[in-house]
Write a protein that binds this DNA or RNA. Sequence first.
DNA 1: GGGTTTTACTAAATCGCTATAGTTGCACCC
DNA 2: GGGTGCAACTATAGCGATTTAGTAAAACCC
Lengths: 340, 340
Amino acid sequence: MNKTKRVTITDIARLAGVSPGAVSFALNGRPGVSEQTRKRILTIAEEHQWLPSSAARALGGAGAGVIGFAVNRSAGTLGAEAFFTDLIAGVQSALAENRIAMQMVLVSSIEEEVATYRRWHSANQVDGVIVIDPRDEDPRFPVLRDLTLPAVVLGSHASGEGHPATIWLDDRQVAHSLFDYLGALGHRSIAYVAGPAEFQHTRLRTEVLAGLGERGVSGEVIATDFSPAAASTAMRGLLSRLHRPTAVVFDNDVMAIAGLRVAQEMGVSVPKDLSVASFDDSVVAGLVHPSITCITRDTFGLGAAAAKFLLEQIDAPDVLADRIGAMPQLTVRESTAVPR
Amino acid sequence: MNKTKRVTITDIARLAGVSPGAVSFALNGRPGVSEQTRKRILTIAEEHQWLPSSAARALGGAGAGVIGFAVNRSAGTLGAEAFFTDLIAGVQSALAENRIAMQMVLVSSIEEEVATYRRWHSANQVDGVIVIDPRDEDPRFPVLRDLTLPAVVLGSHASGEGHPATIWLDDRQVAHSLFDYLGALGHRSIAYVAGPAEFQHTRLRTEVLAGLGERGVSGEVIATDFSPAAASTAMRGLLSRLHRPTAVVFDNDVMAIAGLRVAQEMGVSVPKDLSVASFDDSVVAGLVHPSITCITRDTFGLGAAAAKFLLEQIDAPDVLADRIGAMPQLTVRESTAVPR
DNA sequence: GGGTTTTACTAAATCGCTATAGTTGCACCC
DNA sequence: GGGTGCAACTATAGCGATTTAGTAAAACCC
């Protein structure tokens, strides 16, 4: 009803007494207008709160000015993990300076994720994407390559042939820092309550745990879907045995908290009778009682680095040099101790 | 380098042996093409994985196909609250069907939030926005009104003059359900560790607590910035007194968990010596020991409802009827009991 | 069978901006 | 003083869709 006519570049040009082209030059800081005229134009633009339409800009060859992030987690487990919000916050911090927006979408399978990338690309809706949870033989990578859609993967190791640009954290080393610590404390029977087996980091951590066999440490892996319910079930199973493990490591902090509760319910004292640790940290992990020994990584910084790297990839897609992220650190808290 | 030419409507038209206009008709299901031709066009489009460029579409009068969500929280507290991710997940669920995208941005002040709305509007980047944490005399509302930018507010009470469309939860009733319960248990001295005072729900909860004075309940409010550190400080202060409150209510679950830890450190047993509760629930609140009595609301459903309502507002901005969200429920857990 | 309507299209204008190819006017220069 | 160069613009052609006006052929109608 109230059809307020939108202010356009033509209006600004008319008000400034120049052509639309001149306004464009002034706005984008390129030669073709005198410094005096540029200032006048920019002042008028500001007065009328005019900004160029992003659609028109995108249409005229420039990119969409948007990066995409498709998250493949169920709504329930999403909220539980502080990882995502920290990551998003970090991404935002890097994008804000560049006037780039982030589009986020939740998907429920890797196929849907791939379809989303195709759609985004076809509709020219995003200039690049951030990809998490790389897998062995990941079906997303060939697609991203075919689409020539710039991407940055947050991954476990250096990228191979046909692999998109990657920021990698050495997950093998990360796994060592936690498992070795438990081994050094004297634990000889360690259980690892992991995420889905197809994730690379799950495989790497599993391998590291198995490798500890040489030192007389027996390891066991239980795969879950990251849900606290699955963690509880796993924990109950482990503690019902005749020979309990002396330490249980969880893939994330919410699962660890769920495990802690089961231990308490079953009268198992942490850390006296059992050590508990997590591969993922959060504010809450340090707040519960006992507080949980965790691998702490700078997720915010990681998100910022990923976003910056992606912007570089968008500008120059051919310079494909991987990056190494800041090494996660072991944060020892109350939940781990020397076994009885 | 690999300048793959993008597939356009003209390419599809040529392949189908029709004009671009005909392709547009076929795509958007409007009359002007025979059923037979429509099918042929759509098949060819699918074969070549063509989707109309969203930029071009937006330029041609249609909306941007994007809704915006500016979140005014610091990066740290954002990750702590499951509220946001649940809300976002709900929003997504409602948008996915309509092929609408969501843009999210983190801002650090209400001024920046307002500037973001102005920018989004000027650049024609979003079709509408979701607004949270309404305040008394909220500076965002007149701006949204002037911009005629469709908005849906998640609020505490029915909207007044010049107020955007609102989905409201009766925060007064919510506050009653928790405070009355504590009163009924026998608590006569209740502390409320709240968020920033300018939020409407903070004021309403405070008023309800004060209203309990008639029934002999003395209440006290401590304002914080939602951070766990502030909650710890507040809790330490409360428990150091000669006359401790018998119940402490926190504005969200992370603060409650922080408070719980302080109680444990100071040798105060929950719920024997002290009851603890929270106005916000999450998976973790039910997992810690003792599990925390909370107000549980269907945040996912709220997000979905907000998104749907916003889409309606965008279609028909003049039909301004408020909506009432599903009533939050009290979830009694282990952290509350009859006082000594 | 001539006139009207309907169907199924095409041609062309349009959205708001960017980019490229002019077009001035003025200084410079031997 | 005529050619060259440069600065500061303007004019115009896209970008890729939508949309309106126009048109040719088929269908309908008494």
